[in-house]
Computed example of a mutant assay.
Amino acid sequence: MTAKTLVGDLGGTNLRLALTDGMALEAEIRFLTAEHEGLESALDAYLDGLPAGHRPSSAILAVAGPVSGDRFTLTNCPWSFSRHAVAERYGWSRFVLLNDFSAVAAGLPYLQKQDLEQIKDGTVLPGAPKLVLGPGTGLGVGVAVPSENGWTMIEGEGGHVSLPAGNAEEADLMQRLGNGDVPVSAEEVLSGSGLVALFNAIAERDGRADRVGAGADVVARLTGDACPVACAVMDRFSSFLAGVAANAALTVGARGGVYLTGGVLAHAGAAFREDLFRDRFTANARMADYLAAIPVYRIRHPEPGLFGLRMLARGVSGA
């Protein structure tokens, strides 16, 4: 039997696990982090459910947060664990830990046409860096750059850059969100909790009594007789995301394309204002032509993180 590698995508809300030989994924299961005390609890449940002889000898885990040293603590979840202790507990000869959006970035060069929906015109420049952004529980950012051995992922924390205001309305909202003098990070707006913050700030500004407590409440108000505050939230969200994406694309030279994913976009669906995104993405007087040439896609692959991890397990990209 071919040795299998356990691959996992651990975010603030979900842990997705699967086995792979590099060619396909099998035994995929999703766990809610809120239903387990920590990583080992979820791993025990997963591994105990595998048939005899299917336990993996190695693992690659993508995690939502900066990876450094032996101990890792998630940014938006109370889980914390020692990489060495986990590997020893399960007898893994190899346990790779990397940022979750580095895993997504690892799969970008290998996504097929059916995995993507182009929302902004442009032409992919072969051999140029590729950028991915994903608003979900937090805001993930990943970059894949060409190297001698294929592609290399650059780990960073792009979701925590300061959010740029593009006009007076956005500047006013940022004043409200930051209580006047505290810088607002991109993740504080471009995430599930960010939808809540935007909604309540806009409702307060407009003198409305409406308030929400979860991102799902905002999304629910976008259907049927769409709530004007929820529509305003999606307008601002789409524009803010474009501003962050454009700045990141200029920083890394992402002429290989910009890719959008994440739970917020998946749930927002057609309510995401692609027209506003396109307008704001190129709203740079000096670099408008540069940005206009960069194509932007929405990733339609159901599990881009696990797909990228499969590529890493396969040895296509360096882990």
Rank of each mutant, 00 (worst) to 15 (best):
R205H: 13
R236V: 12
A242F: 10
A230K: 07
D206I: 00
E169F: 14
A168S: 12
D235A: 02
R205M: 11
A165G: 11
T261K: 01
G213P: 00
G215C: 07
G180I: 13
V212I: 13
E169S: 07
T261S: 14
L260W: 08
L260Q: 04
G180H: 12
L190D: 01
S238Y: 01
I202Q: 13
N167F: 06
V161G: 02
P183S: 08
F237R: 05
P164Q: 08
Q175A: 14
L163Q: 07
D181N: 11
V218H: 10
L260D: 01
G192Q: 01
G224E: 13
M174R: 13
D210K: 11
R221L: 15
G262A: 03
S193F: 00
G243N: 03
M174G: 00
V218I: 09
T251H: 11
N200G: 10
G243W: 08
L250D: 01
D206R: 14
G262C: 04
F240V: 03
A249V: 09
A186G: 02
A232D: 13
L195E: 06
M174W: 03
N200F: 09
V233E: 10
L195F: 02
A220I: 07
D217Y: 04
D225M: 05
R211E: 11
G263A: 05
A254L: 12
G192T: 00
Y259W: 09
G192H: 01
E188L: 07
A246Y: 06
A214W: 01
V244M: 02
N247K: 09
I202H: 05
M174F: 11
Y259L: 06
G262N: 02
V258C: 05
E188G: 03
T261H: 10
Y259H: 12
C227V: 01
G178Y: 09
Q175C: 07
F240E: 02
V184K: 04
V212G: 09
T251D: 03
R176Q: 15
A232K: 11
G256P: 14
C231F: 00
L195T: 00
A203D: 05
P228K: 10
G207Q: 06
C227D: 15
V184M: 06
G257V: 11
R255M: 12
A232V: 01
R176N: 04
F240M: 09
V196Y: 10
D210A: 15
A216T: 12
L190M: 03
S238N: 04
D181T: 15
T251C: 12
G192V: 00
D210Q: 15
V244Y: 04
V258D: 02
G263Y: 11
F237S: 03
G262T: 06
C231A: 14
F199G: 02
V233D: 10
G257K: 13
R208N: 10
A197P: 00
R236G: 00
G166Q: 04
P228C: 11
L177K: 07
C231Y: 00
